[in-house]
Design a protein around this nucleic acid. Structure first.
Length: 770
DNA sequence: TGGGGGCACCTTTTT
DNA sequence: GGTGCCCCCA
């Protein structure tokens, strides 16, 4: 870091006007947001109003005017990518001197930093591990098993979501509301939560929510520690304030109380994390929470064309709960937002790919383009199509690199070598690859460990001295423990990426995948190589593990001329010249599931998501919907999203030239796919389209030959003691195809399915009378 | 102990 | 279409 004070660096630059260069080109509101540095400030920044610019300039301004050193600024973003971006942009304004903005990061990464220093205050060791969702679920499963709770009726997943909810609201086990205790296992929720926290403590681990919650505890119970941070942080900045939850709010309030120089930037119309406990209320309440707060509104949009902005604004007015603002732009109206109806998902992907090809033909680039979906399962169709046409793309989000089984296995080995007490890691790799140590043996080890109050590895060591475990399991166990010892010795002398390679080879893990003949095996081996490579970028194993615990795939976004496929959530904060918004159908978007859970509030959040989607576009937005959608392997008729109807007609153009749907004005008529030379007419969707057209039907769910009845797995075979089916009945099953009922035997039903021309009994259905 | 067949349930969205 | 669980057999 340069030793020249930043103020001098900035003022040393020759300037024509009295203002520093970084203030050039800011509009009056933006400038006010930059220069109002003292006291609480709320910046209500609509989409595309230069929010990031304001934030970075403000940071630069504070540094350049010598109000604070980089280490005295706490700046919180929602993603690591946003943090990096901000660091980079501040750097380019100010010179290189900002490498050391040590307190710029996400809520979670900053919390982890704080907690590493003060872990002992919440009963953890400095070396605590951060559990990911998978570890967390396995831990919960173990607890439920130990407590004899039926994991079928009360799923670990649901319990995890409850815990998450409590932690989002900053509730420790002793503070949860009485009624919440009855949300799980007949009133045992509170006790289980307590048990869970105790287990975490024993494992010297914490989950994601704990990072924040423990910090809050540290601040609340240790006035001296908090006072230290107050002295340290002269300025506090928060991005995406609309998405903060109660815990984050408390965390912020505790830290900002020192200087009172708190600046929050957000947009209530872009609050899309309600399901994660975000409270739009935080932003609506800001002036009450921080008396004397300056409120600055940024309403001039610099990003999108007039039509795009108008379409998004028109849509969002359907929401009741909002502060309300009027975004405006001086840009020309540009193209209207295009709305297209397609036959099915395949046609939709074909259509989008065709549009992309024509964009590129006209000189556009692939990385101008984003495909923004509601849920990750929708990505697949686009990937398939892009691969087929050789279009370069990247998926952001989706199954994450560090959550893949092979990566997690490899990491478990490393964790175990680093700390033998890591029971979760021990259980994960004890029999991967197979060492003949089955469930029974693992259970025995776990039992011994529990009663002797030692780690499982320790217990296993003890048990090799006795004859509790015999035969193959014993040999395997002894060899494994010996390996562990050796690796631990080697770890002293070796770089951690070398160590990883050694472990993966010695343990037989690499060999396991090399011998695996399944098509995914090669990819897994590649992933392991990539893991070892990326480990090399870190100085220590610790820093690497910390990194992967806190970083998501969205943060690993690389540059390159590629189309981006991502969820709407992941697209927050990004912009693209051309944006595709597929899947605008009821039940898909707005998501049925979210509406079932959250009612009107959820619907409004879905609408904000639509708003975020449209406003990502600079020049052109294309919305599509289909008539038939494959959901959970089953064809469904779907209708256009209500959001399609809510779009202001003047700014949109309905183009239903491809595919077919009859959904009112603008969408009537049947037509054929646009580009017969590129399209696969043998696709199921196309066949159904043809069949349906011939039959004069409007939309065909894939109904069968007129005689067969639809049968489902688990279909009730007897109703009121009387079988619903009789031998000889013709049936159709979505997975197995056509079939004939052979035997109805009480609760069991045997069907012979005729698949690929071969008669074969492939299933019997068991059902209960209603 | 481990593999294979047969099935149920499934999925939002992420730090 | 994919996964994870249960049950049965070698």
């Amino acid at each position: 870091m340069s030793s020249i004070p930043l103020s001098q660096q900035a003022s040393a630059r020759p300037r024509a006007s009295a203002d520093p260069a970084y203030l050039d080109g800011l509009n009056p509101e933006q400038r006010k947001a930059v220069e109002t540095t003292e006291g609480p400030v709320l910046v209500l920044a609509g989409a595309g109003t230069g929010k990031t610019r304001v934030l970075t300039t403000r940071l630069a301004h504070i540094l350049a005017t010598g109000k604070a050193w980089p280490s005295q600024i706490l700046a919180v973003t929602f993603t690591n990518k946003a943090a990096r971006e901000m660091k980079h942009r501040v750097g380019s304004i100010i010179g290189e001197a900002v490498e050391g903005l040590p307190w710029l990061g996400t809520f979670h990464s900053i919390s982890a930093q704080i907690l590493r220093r003060h872990a002992e205050l919440v009963g953890l060791k400095q070396s605590f591990t951060i559990l990911d969702t998978d570890d967390q679920l396995r831990l919960i499963k173990q607890i439920l098993e130990a407590e004899n709770i039926d994991a079928k009726r009360w799923t670990p997943r649901y319990f995890a979501s409850l815990v998450d909810g409590w932690k989002n609201r900053a509730m420790t086990p002793d503070r949860i509301p009485e009624e919440d205790k009855w949300k799980f296992a007949d009133g045992k929720a509170g006790d289980l939560y307590k048990l869970y926290q105790e287990r975490l403590s024993v494992l010297n681990a914490c989950d994601f929510g704990d990072l924040l919650l423990h910090c809050i505890t540290v601040f609340q119970e240790n006035a001296d520690v908090l006072a230290d941070f107050h002295r340290k942080f002269r300025y506090v900045l928060v991005d995406e304030y609309q998405d903060t939850n109660v815990a984050q709010y408390l965390w912020l309030r505790l830290l900002a109380r020192g200087s009172n120089n708190l600046c929050c930037v957000g947009d209530d119309d872009q609050s899309i994390y309600g399901w994660r406990g975000a409270e739009v209320d935080n932003i609506l309440r800001f002036e009450t929470d921080f008396p004397g707060a300056a409120v600055i509104r940024l309403e001039r949009n610099y990003r999108s064309t007039g039509n795009i902005l108008a379409a998004a604004s028109g849509l969002i007015t359907a929401n009741k709960a909002r502060l309300g603002k009027t975004l405006w732009t001086e840009d020309d109206p540009g193209e209207k937002v295009q709305v297209s109806g397609l036959w099915d998902g395949e046609a939709e992907a074909r259509f989008v790919a065709d549009e992309i090809e024509s964009h590129v033909r006209k000189g556009g680039k692939h990385d101008d383009i984003a495909v923004l979906v509601r849920a990750s399962w929708q990505m697949r169709a686009f990937e398939d199509r892009f691969i087929m046409l050789g279009l370069p793309y990247k998926v952001i989000g989706g199954p994450r690199f560090f959550e893949r089984a092979e990566i997690r296995d490899a990491l478990a080995y490393l964790r175990l070598v680093r700390s033998e007490a890591d029971d979760l890691a021990f259980e994960r790799v004890i029999n991967t690859p197979k060492r003949g140590i089955g469930d029974t043996s693992v259970q025995k080890i776990a039992l011994t460990a529990r009663s002797a109050q030692v780690s499982m590895a320790e217990a296993a060591r003890l048990m090799t001295q006795t004859d509790e475990i015999r035969g193959k399991a014993r040999t395997g166990l002894i060899a494994f423990l010996k390996d562990l010892d050796r690796w631990r010795e080697q770890a002293e002398a070796m770089r951690h990426d070398e160590l990883a390679e050694v472990i993966l080879d010695d343990s037989g893990y690499t060999a396991m995948w090399r011998e695996d003949k399944s098509p995914q095996a090669a990819g897994r081996l590649d992933n392991l190589k990539e893991l070892v490579r990326s480990m090399g970028e870190f100085d220590t194993l610790e820093s690497f593990l910390e990194h992967i615990a806190l970083v998501t795939d969205a943060d690993r976004m690389e540059d390159g001329d590629e189309i981006s496929i991502m969820t709407l959530h992941a697209a927050k904060g990004l912009e693209f010249p051309l944006v595709f918004l597929p899947g605008w159908e009821e039940t898909v978007f707005p998501s049925q599931r979210s509406m079932d859970e959250g009612g009107t509030a959820a619907l409004e959040e879905e609408r904000r998501l639509a708003y975020v989607g449209i406003t990502r576009a600079r020049e052109r937005a294309v919305i599509t919907f289909t008539a038939n959608r494959m959901i959970f392997g089953r064809w469904q008729n779907v209708i256009p999203s209500r959001f399609v109807d809510e779009l202001p007609p003047d700014n949109c153009e309905a183009k239903s030239e491809t595919g077919y749907y009859d959904a009112g004005p603008g969408f009537e008529g049947v037509s054929e796919p646009s580009d017969p030379f590129r399209s696969s007419y043998e696709s199921p969707g196309w066949k159904r389209f043809q069949a349906s057209k011939a039959a004069g039907r409007r939309a065909d769910p894939g109904v069968i030959d007129g005689k067969a009845q639809l049968i489902e797995s688990g279909d009730a075979s007897s109703v009121g003691g009387q079988s619903k089916w009789k031998p000889g009945d013709r049936v159709f099953h979505q997975k197995f195809g056509y079939g004939v009922v052979k035997v109805t035997d009480g609760a069991k039903l045997t069907v012979a399915f005729d698949k690929a021309g071969v008669k074969k009994v492939v299933a019997s259905f068991v059902g209960e009378a209603p």
